[in-house]
């Protein structure tokens, strides 16, 4: 029972963190109907920022959270202006974006290797704060609690933004139907650019916790992170931020239970979950939109 309880609690914390990883990708998809295959690489960049804040300036990696937010929203606006208008003109923007962002991911990885070298970087446990934290009688590293809290908080803030601000409501209007939003006079371009930037910033913020939750940061981690994020948001529902939390929790719980009871098969799990979900519930657990051809 002891093991089960621990695995379940760890799965919830880990799952909240994975919601944070996936939610930016989901927002971008919902608003722009494009798949950002470079998502994991932006997470990596955010992680490196946290690493250098600590190792060069001695600051807590948590300072990287607000810095990443500002930096990556700006970067998102820039990338949006450079790439998206032209992408929209192609015959199949969803597929074209998929390939384009894959290329971008390769370019970012190459630049990161040139800039940071190949060594995997990590941070000592003490960098984020000393000791452990007790939850329901089980002891967890402080970094886990911080990552889980960051995940929960980001989802809540995003929810408040989307449902209780005017800009957010406009964003949801674009999500529901781009054409209607254009027709009703919303500045769709600016709303989309902001959503894209927020998507990147959420990835970068998730990167701050990567040294603790993902074992370290290295330039070539992007593809694996992107695949996992995709799994999380597909299990939940594409284009639905609340769905991401469900997806993250299912993923986290399943992974931790597998590690406890069938460890060598654990890494197989996300891929199996993804394929099974797609085949049985093609629109995700909480989705309504059909996506079969």
């Amino acid at each position: 029972m002891f093991l089960l309880e621990y695995a379940v609690l760890a799965g919830i914390l880990y799952g909240l963190y994975f919601s944070l990883i996936g939610i930016g990708l989901n927002l971008t998809f919902g608003v722009l109907k494009i798949v950002n295959l470079a998502h994991g690489d932006f997470l990596m960049l955010g992680g490196f920022l946290a690493y250098f804040l600590y190792s060069a300036l001695g600051l807590s990696p948590l300072w990287a959270v607000p810095i990443n937010l500002v930096l990556f929203v700006a970067l998102g606006g820039l990338l949006y202006a450079l790439l998206i208008p032209r992408l929209r003109q192609s015959r199949d923007p969803e597929m074209a974006s998929f390939i384009l962002f894959f290329g971008l991911s390769q370019a970012i990885e190459a630049l990161a290797i040139l800039a940071f070298g190949n060594n995997q970087r990590s941070l000592p446990a003490a960098a984020i704060g000393p000791g452990t934290i007790s939850l329901f009688g089980q002891v967890f590293p402080l970094s886990w609690a911080a990552a889980g809290a960051a995940g929960l908080l980001s989802v809540l803030l995003l929810y408040l933004y989307l449902y209780h601000t005017r800009l957010g409501q406009a964003t949801r209007a674009v999500m529901a139907s781009r054409e209607e939003a254009v027709a009703s006079g919303l500045s769709v371009g600016r709303i989309s650019a902001l959503a894209f930037g927020i998507g990147l910033a959420l990835a970068a913020i998730a990167g701050v916790f990567a040294p603790y939750l993902l074992g370290g940061i290295s330039p070539n981690m992007g593809v694996a992170v992107t695949t996992t994020s995709f799994t999380v948001i597909v299990i939940g529902a594409l284009g639905n931020p609340v769905g991401t939390v469900v997806g993250g929790l299912i993923y986290g719980l399943a992974l931790m239970l597998m590690e406890t009871y069938a460890s060598s098969w654990a890494t197989l799990l996300p891929y199996l979950l993804l394929v099974i979900t797609l085949l049985i519930w093609p629109s995700g657990l909480l989705g309504r939109r059909l996506r079969s051809a």
């Binding site: 032209r86 390939i99 290329g103 390769q106 190459a110």
Partner: peptide, 16 residues
């Protein structure tokens, strides 16, 4: 590394 960079940018350019 330069090659991977060229490859990535080539893909971006091709799509666009």
């Amino acid at each position: 590394q330069y090659f991977q960079l060229i490859y990535g940018l080539l893909i971006v350019g091709l799509v666009l």
